[in-house]
């Protein structure tokens, strides 16, 4: 039994992406269990909703980023050169807008729509939030896809297929992107997942603390970012600083300041784990 456990651990240690996936999920489960025991029900429910919403948005970001990137890469196959140039030009402009500014404005737009009563369902709001984030992160994926296509373009691969009469769209979409780049794309999606969580939490946090007087943050679905900006959570985080000077206070943090500490932990621990998973994946597939 002991040897088997040792074998499993050694195997996991050699595949760091899987190891960190286990650590991440295990950590989340542990925190949930702790909260179940020591956090009041309404607060726990809020954290659960915030967590689910945040990760739902991040997952939707992946879907939209993938779709946008695929459309973009295929649009660059357009026969008219000026159309391609225009497309790349517009993409570069979009790239020059700092992500946080773009997303902030997108969110302000969504909030205004909410205030005007044009958005009713929470899911629609989540989808819109994901679209906004995708618009400012999908270029990373486009860059990767274009880089992969360029790589095969430089080698004989592309031309060898062309002279066999194989359609260009098949070469790019099937042979290059699907057959030879899906691992790279998946790896990039992991990284985008992390970026999406970071940006989304940051914007939600900023909106909640900065714009809440005119744009009601209550209208937006609860996410980890909005929960962190919540006054109770802020008090909880401030308590961490307090414990630096009074170490005896540390024990209280895990019982009395659980909401804020949990939310902050979920954000940071998830970002760290996703980074480690992406790294392990890169190492395992020698990308």
């Amino acid at each position: 039994m002991k040897t088997k456990f040792k074998q499993i651990f050694e195997k996991l240690y050699a595949q760091k992406d899987k190891l960190w996936l286990v650590i991440w999920l295990g950590g989340l489960l542990l925190v949930w269990g702790w909260n179940l025991l020591f956090l009041n029900r309404p607060a726990l429910q809020r954290i659960e909703t915030g967590f689910i919403n945040s990760f739902m948005i991040a997952l939707l970001v992946l879907v939209f980023s993938l779709a946008l990137s695929w459309i973009t890469v295929n649009s660059l196959l357009l026969p008219h050169r000026w159309l391609r140039t225009l497309f790349v030009f517009l993409l570069n402009i979009l790239r020059s807008i700092p992500q946080i500014v773009g997303i902030l404005f997108g969110y302000v737009g969504i909030t205004l729509l909410l205030q005007q009563g044009k958005l009713q369902s929470t899911f629609t709001v989540l989808v819109l939030m994901a679209i906004v984030v995708s618009l400012f992160v999908f270029q990373e994926l486009v860059d990767l896809m274009r880089e992969r296509v360029r790589h095969f373009h430089k080698s004989d691969f592309y031309q060898a297929m062309l002279v066999r009469g194989i359609a260009e769209s098949r070469i790019i979409n099937y042979d290059i992107l699907w057959m030879n780049s899906r691992v790279h794309i998946f790896n990039k999606l992991i990284a985008i997942f992390g970026v999406a969580i970071f940006l989304q939490c940051s914007v939600d946090f900023i909106i909640s603390i900065g714009l809440s007087t005119t744009l009601s943050s209550i209208d937006l679905p609860v996410t980890l970012g909005t929960l962190l900006a919540n006054i109770d959570s802020k008090q909880d985080i401030l308590a961490i600083g307090n414990s630096l000077m009074h170490p005896s206070y540390i024990s209280k943090i895990f019982f009395e300041h659980l909401q804020g500490v949990t939310v902050a932990f979920l954000i940071v621990f998830s970002l760290l784990s996703i980074y480690k998973i992406a790294n392990g994946f890169t190492e395992r597939f020698k990308l």
């Binding site: 080698s155 004989d156 691969f157 031309q159 060898a160 297929m161 042979d175 057959m179 030879n180």
Partner: peptide, 9 residues
Amino acid sequence: FQHADEALN
């Protein structure tokens, strides 16, 4: 093409 490694998927 000369390099089979490059010319084949």
